[in-house]
Amino acid sequence: MLSDKAKSEIQQLKARYPHPNSALLPALALAQKEHGWLSPEVLEEVAEVMGLSPAQVGSVASFYTMFNRRPVGKYLVQVCTNVACSLLGAEHIVEHLKRKLGINVGETTPDGLFTLLEVECLGSCGTAPVMQVNDTYYENLTAEKIDQILAELRRR
């Protein structure tokens, strides 16, 4: 469950803000970093450290798309399919990834390595099409580039 280190970091975050509740989003991000996703048990623990009700914490966690409420693969592959990316072929990028990974959008590969998602604008329209894998942006994508990226991630 939540490590003592995470719990003490959340306490520090609470003290950092003029009002402790402001630490909720960073606390959830921290918990997710540690566990990969926010299970009901983790949400309850965050609620306890934050001094908030589990219902309150659950309602906040469910509002924001970056909080995973189901397990995701080691690499969360998020392809922007909004206007600028889609004008430059984001649909082909998604199709290529589906083929290469053998999964549909919203699914995780059986080895637990990759989860594929379509997401809204990532703010990288000048270098479209773009995808984000965990915290890293990959820009000006082509099918060949994707093959290289996937091979590199598999080697890690």
Binding site: N82, V83, A84, E120, C121, G123, S124, C125, G126
Partner: peptide, 11 residues
């Protein structure tokens, strides 16, 4: 919180 599709200047 730059999120308006098409916008990437603040980044």
């Amino acid at each position: 919180d730059e999120g308006e599709p098409g916008t990437f200047k603040d980044r």
